[in-house]
């Protein structure tokens, strides 16, 4: 605590001195915490990554998502919270066309990714999935592959052969996933030899290596201990500088800690969608209020 809080006194005096000279207090710092978040927080949604238009999803007869519309901003973290079975995972999986892989699933509505309808007639879902990476609840590095192979698998199996390029992308992805320092000495060990938290970061690196525009995370830390969870959350903060991140979590505190926008789902419907600080300090909807205060759900 001391280390982080010991801003030297010169700042305090500096501020006073500056005001003496300029005769006014420079209040340029915006009122939001964390300088980097300002662009996405301070201004309304600048660039839209996903535009979802009256989306409905079914599993057989069961409708999991009901007529849902929202816009997900680019280069920001959007959290989706809600009780189990509220359709949040289904919604997430509709964003990279994974929902349709479930037998008996159906979907209606439109989703545009940077303006392009990802359910358009000529769209190859495989290509959409390359643009929209996904990290799952249970870390799942491929057991037959080394750490190196795990990271590069998305590239190799998509036809990248150039070894130098592969090595570069692997290192970059591992660095972005904050794992490089921990594994660069033994890249040839099996991916499954890592600890749970490391495995999850390996999966993040694997998803990043194909250079997607968006990263979907389906409860990425729910199987991890608090320290590993913190690491993942810190990582999310770093990644949002370059990526659009949508995270599904049943952990409200996690949504509060690491997202810029929060959407509250209930029974397949979007109940409230706002800036995270608004949702957690002053939600507009009674159901949201009850959920974030822990009165139900």
């Amino acid at each position: 605590m001391n280390a982080s809080l010991t801003v030297t006194q010169s700042k305090r005096e500096g501020a006073a001195v500056k005001t003496k000279e300029s005769q006014s207090l420079p209040l340029t710092r915006p009122a939001t915490p964390g300088g980097k978040e300002t662009t996405s927080r301070g201004t309304p949604v600048s660039e839209v990554a996903f535009e979802v238009d009256s989306l409905s999803c079914w599993f057989g007869q069961h409708q999991a998502v009901q007529d849902l519309s929202l816009q997900i901003p680019a280069k920001a973290v959007t959290a989706i919270i809600g009780p189990s079975g509220c359709g949040k995972s289904t919604f997430l999986r509709s964003l990279n066309r994974m929902h349709e892989l479930v037998r008996g699933s159906r979907l209606r509505g439109q989703i545009r990714l940077f303006g392009e309808n990802i359910y358009g007639p000529r769209i190859d879902p495989t290509l959409i999935r390359r643009r929209v990476g996904m990290v799952f609840q249970k870390s799942n590095p491929f057991p037959t592959m080394s750490i190196r192979e795990n990271v590069t698998v998305g590239l190799r199996l998509n036809g990248v052969r150039n070894h130098i390029a592969l090595e570069e992308r692997m290192e970059k992805a591992l660095r972005m996933a904050a794992l490089w320092e921990e594994v660069n000495e033994h890249l040839d060990r099996p991916g499954t030899s890592l600890s749970g938290g490391q495995q999850q970061r390996l999966c993040i690196a694997r998803a990043l290596a194909v250079q997607p525009d968006v990263l979907l995370m389906d409860e990425p830390a729910s199987a991890l201990d608090p320290i590993a969870t913190t690491k993942i959350e810190e990582l999310i903060q770093e990644l949002k500088k370059d990526y659009t991140i949508v995270i599904v979590t049943h952990n409200m505190q996690q949504a509060a800690r690491c997202s810029d926008y929060t959407a509250f789902f209930y029974m397949g419907r979007l109940i409230e969608y706002d800036k995270t600080d608004k949702v957690f300090t002053n939600p507009s909807n009674k159901q949201t209020e009850d959920y974030v205060t822990g009165r139900f759900g």
Partner: peptide
């Protein structure tokens, strides 16, 4: 485990 298939599909592998 199905997780491996999903992970691979999510990477856009054919």
């Amino acid at each position: 485990p199905n997780g491996y298939r999903e992970a691979a599909l999510a990477l856009g592998i054919p």
